[in-house]
Nucleic acid binder design. Structure first.
Lengths: 182, 182
DNA sequence: GATAGAACTAAGCGCCCGCTTAGGTCAACG
DNA sequence: CGTTGACCTAAGCGGGCGCTTAGTTCTATC
């Protein structure tokens, strides 16, 4: 059911998807959606929450993968880029359908999203402290690094068979340049 | 009418907007939409076409603003970033609602979008030829430079009063680092 | 003042929307 | 074997959807 909804929301957007679409994709009757979720919006929230947790785990894992600031940042941008391509449909829902959540649910998710930023800011500061990075605007640079990864969901299509490893590698290399790695 | 539709589509997405929403925002009756446009999708196409032309003009103008490759790239990323913030609602429709267009209309727009990429690739090649930039993957780097600007529409909110000049300036500075400007 | 044409609306058609209700099916358990 | 409870569906309610039609209002031109 969740999988079916992810596919539908990613393809047509939340507003453009009917609960009947989701049910058909899941091979169930229209009413089956409401056995598991109180509303269409609750279904989106469940997807968004799961997706954000998975993406955050991915980023934190990469942060912990190395002690060297440059290797660490490289790993983070590589992993986060890769995640957005390997989970393209889920990632698209996560990144594009925030506005469709209720106020309460959106506030929950937004507070989760601040953690992405904080982790990335931490990685940049590590490099500055070690004298390896040269960055004036830490917050802005962290935002730009995340942008580089997140924007992949706008155009990357797994079906087109592009080399996702090469793209993630390029993004990671560019990231090191962006922080003035020496 | 176009303005009203831009606002509505940017706020709720194409699928989540009804033609009645648009009409109310324009201060007209629901039928008035169909006096000017054949269908809801035709309305989106008109917006998308106008938006893409404006954005492309902005990028080309910046390209022509200087002969020096570094100054040129800096101007392009600054202008393109600035455009996405100054025209945040239009830009959001331009970047996020491609999938809602009919096949024929989408093909039109996609061919327009390839020009963005070509202009950016040209700017990067200029710098390589002049010995100022050090870039391995020209296409990938051009894509990343555009990503940096385009992803602004995902989170930038004019109402929040952030300093759009400073953000555009940062993006432009980061762009020069990304191409290994020496 | 008469006329043409563009801009607009009131009303509504047929369809699909989110969601509810009442009831059916079936494995697990005493 | 009877009961429970989780899972599911057929049917449908009230309402909003994209879009059409028939007719009105306004403005420019002679």
């Amino acid at each position: 059911m969740l999988d079916a909804a992810v596919d539908a929301f990613a393809e047509r957007g939340f507003g453009g998807t009917s609960t009947r679409d989701v049910a058909v994709r899941a091979g169930r009757s229209p009413a089956a959606v409401y056995v598991h979720y109180d509303s269409k919006e609750a279904l989106l929230y469940a997807i968004s929450l799961e997706g954000h947790m998975a993406a955050l785990d991915c980023l934190k894992l990469a942060y912990a993968s190395s002690e060297d600031p440059a290797a660490r940042l490289h790993a983070m941008v590589f992993a986060f880029s890769d995640w957005h391509m390997e989970n393209a449909r889920l990632a698209r829902v996560v990144q594009y359908e925030l506005h469709a959540l209720s106020k309460v649910h959106r506030a929950d998710i937004v507070s989760l999203r601040r953690r992405f930023h904080r982790v990335m800011v931490g990685a940049v500061r590590d490099g500055i402290r070690a004298g390896q990075f040269q960055v004036d605007d830490v917050n802005g640079t962290a935002r730009a690094l995340l942008s580089l990864c997140i924007d992949l969901v706008r155009w990357f299509d797994p079906a087109r068979g592009r080399n996702s490893r090469a793209i993630a590698q390029l993004n990671a290399d560019l990231a090191l340049r962006m922080v003035g790695d020496v």
